[in-house]
Amino acid sequence: MSTAAIVILLVLLAPIIGVVVWVVLAAGFTTVPAGSLGLVVKNGKATDHTLAPGRHWVPLVRRFMIVEYPSVEMAYRAGEGASTASSELDRSGPSLSCALGDRARADVSYTVRYAIIPEQLRTVHERFGPQGINGLVRDESARAISRSLSDPEVTVASLFGSERTETEARLAAAVTAALEEHGLRVAGFVLGPVDLGRTGEVIQATVRARFELALEEAEAATRLAQARNDGELERQITSLREGAWRYRETDLWRELVQRSDGVQLGRRRPGYGPGRLGLTVREDTPTNDPATTDQTTTDQTAADDTSTATGMP
């Protein structure tokens, strides 16, 4: 073959070879989406090669595969229904029922925020896989919290005031140590509401009683002053002075409004009597009881006559 033929052959084959090489190389490019980590799996076995988000080239001739895991923080919320999970990164479950160090029962709600440690992604993949991380966090966090709360030093008082902060820090340290053993880094821990059952009801009743006693003491001075004024009013009533009745009028109307036994305020018929007010007070009575109705009418008439004589509305 002449030199010219060789040159012509090379000119024709070079583009073809370039296209083939480009197709092979282009097929090996893969993109790891943002918020994910790519674990390189060779022939079905995980490797220590972890891919960060972005574009990477993996040789197809060696049968590589990429398994994606979340690289952002995930959350598990204990104390909420499973239907409240908003996404794959935010899971929820029932509250944790356990016993405190003083044997008091408690239903604990908490939130754990965690992320995968990239250097230990292979361990996570081989032991749990993408779908087993949530179960791991649920079980290990519940175990760590139960052990910490069962310590004899932890009592009901440890869940209130400044001791609650110390208890939360203790639980966070226990959960962090438990999850780091399995390749997960704890980014945050929040101790939520704790339901103490009957014990909590006793505590709330004790707190309410203390504030109710303070309220009674605060109102005692007002009631004492009112009793003194009522005593002075009794002496003024015998003189039928208009000022004494006007003083008591506001309290009487307030008592009528606050009554809940069927008292009604109605408008008096025109021409009922000169100098009479346009309001009347009536109590609800059963209409099918004539005796009760007659007695109510008699009492109302007597009350109207009494108010006319005294000048009270």
Rank of each mutant, 00 (worst) to 15 (best):
4 A>Y: 08
7 V>L: 15
10 L>H: 06
18 G>Q: 06
21 V>Q: 11
23 V>W: 05
28 G>W: 03
29 F>D: 00
37 L>P: 04
40 V>Q: 01
41 V>S: 01
44 G>S: 06
46 A>G: 12
48 D>I: 00
49 H>D: 12
52 A>Y: 00
62 R>P: 03
63 R>F: 10
67 V>I: 11
73 E>H: 08
74 M>Q: 15
74 M>A: 09
76 Y>I: 13
76 Y>R: 12
78 A>F: 05
81 G>R: 10
83 S>P: 01
87 S>A: 05
87 S>K: 01
90 D>H: 11
92 S>W: 02
94 P>Y: 07
94 P>C: 00
95 S>C: 10
99 A>Y: 13
101 G>Q: 04
101 G>A: 04
103 R>N: 15
103 R>P: 03
109 S>G: 08
110 Y>C: 03
112 V>P: 01
115 A>I: 05
115 A>M: 08
121 L>I: 06
122 R>L: 05
124 V>P: 06
124 V>R: 00
125 H>L: 01
128 F>Q: 01
129 G>H: 00
132 G>N: 08
132 G>Y: 08
139 D>I: 13
139 D>M: 12
142 A>Y: 02
142 A>V: 04
143 R>G: 02
143 R>F: 06
144 A>G: 07
151 D>H: 10
155 T>P: 02
157 A>K: 11
162 S>E: 15
170 R>N: 06
171 L>G: 02
172 A>W: 07
173 A>M: 05
185 R>M: 10
186 V>Y: 03
198 R>H: 09
201 E>G: 06
212 E>Y: 05
214 A>G: 11
216 E>V: 10
218 A>V: 11
221 A>Q: 02
225 A>E: 14
225 A>K: 10
225 A>D: 10
228 R>G: 12
229 N>L: 15
233 L>P: 00
242 E>P: 02
243 G>Y: 05
252 L>H: 04
252 L>P: 04
254 R>V: 07
255 E>Q: 09
261 D>G: 03
262 G>E: 11
263 V>P: 00
264 Q>V: 14
265 L>I: 15
265 L>T: 14
268 R>M: 05
270 P>N: 09
270 P>W: 10
271 G>R: 05
273 G>S: 10
273 G>K: 00
276 R>N: 03
277 L>P: 13
280 T>H: 03
287 T>H: 12
302 A>S: 12
304 D>K: 07
311 G>N: 07
311 G>V: 03
